[in-house]
């Protein structure tokens, strides 16, 4: 069963072709890595998957809903986290989670916030203003917000950026557990290749808006005759021909 299906996606700006004929599927219970250097088209792709940006061509089906026609039905069952989009700094962590709990119509919101505070070690931070938190703490709050509605499809942009190794490992374990417990599908954009190797069932390597290569991390490492995904990434990023 597909959580996400992307067909011939194109995004053309007046000065640039940001995404060029991108097609892929993401099955439920799987984690797909979206990799690529800066300007490869990852953010543009994620923005289109979330309905924030309209494609120039192509179609997106999220949880069976056509994003061009019925995106709000899909968005209620999805969620997103990025360290590059902030939560209101003057609100406490609890208030931020309450606001988004209302937006996502979360049942028994107080209890859900308590569960997430425990899962992401936020209990001592709930009543502090979000703006007073460290970068790592903000990342954990953003993740808690992304888990509020128990999403069936989770889009994560650099989910462990700014986290120390201990917390980064903790979050990766939480993602694995969540996927196992709920069967959720996760699309993960990351520059942390060790994280990609650990979490992803398959990766899409993007370059200049197109898919440069795709496959399971182990298969890609074998195909390029490298030792790890870091080396595969560097090889593809530095190789001019697609």
């Amino acid at each position: 069963m597909e959580a996400l299906r992307v067909e011939h996606l194109v995004k053309r700006y007046p000065q640039a072709l940001a995404v060029d004929d991108l097609s892929f599927t993401l099955a439920r219970g799987r984690i797909l890595g979206l990799l690529g250097g800066n300007g490869a088209g990852k953010t543009t792709t994620i923005s289109m998957l979330l309905g924030m940006l309209l494609p120039s061509a192509g179609r997106i089906f999220a949880l069976g809903h056509d994003m061009a026609r019925d995106r709000f039905a899909a968005l209620a069952r999805m969620n997103f986290s990025s360290p590059y989009i902030a939560l209101p700094a003057r609100l406490s962590v609890r208030e931020n989670l309450q606001v988004y709990g209302h937006l996502y119509n979360v049942a028994r919101l107080g209890r859900r916030i308590g569960e997430l505070a425990e899962r992401f070690r936020l209990a001592g931070l709930l009543d502090r203003p979000a703006g007073d938190l460290s970068a790592g703490q903000k990342t954990r709050v953003a993740l808690a917000k992304a888990f509020l509605n128990q999403p069936e499809l989770l889009l994560l942009d650099e989910p462990t950026a700014s986290l120390d190794p201990d917390m980064g490992d903790y979050v990766r374990t939480a993602l694995e557990e969540y996927r196992r417990e709920t069967g959720a599908a996760i699309l993960l954009a990351s520059h942390n290749m060790a994280e990609v190797e650990r979490l992803c069932d398959e990766v899409l390597m993007m370059k200049q808006g197109r898919v440069a290569d795709r496959g399971a991390p182990a298969a890609l490492i074998a195909r390029y005759g490298r030792d790890n995904m870091e080396e595969v990434f560097l090889h593809i990023a530095r190789n001019e021909a697609l």
Partner: peptide, 18 residues
């Protein structure tokens, strides 16, 4: 503007808020 200044619009526009 408060949503723009707090860089919160991205979260709002990908939520089910119409």
């Amino acid at each position: 503007l408060e949503e723009i200044w707090s860089r919160n619009l991205g979260h709002l526009f990908v939520s089910p808020l119409r």
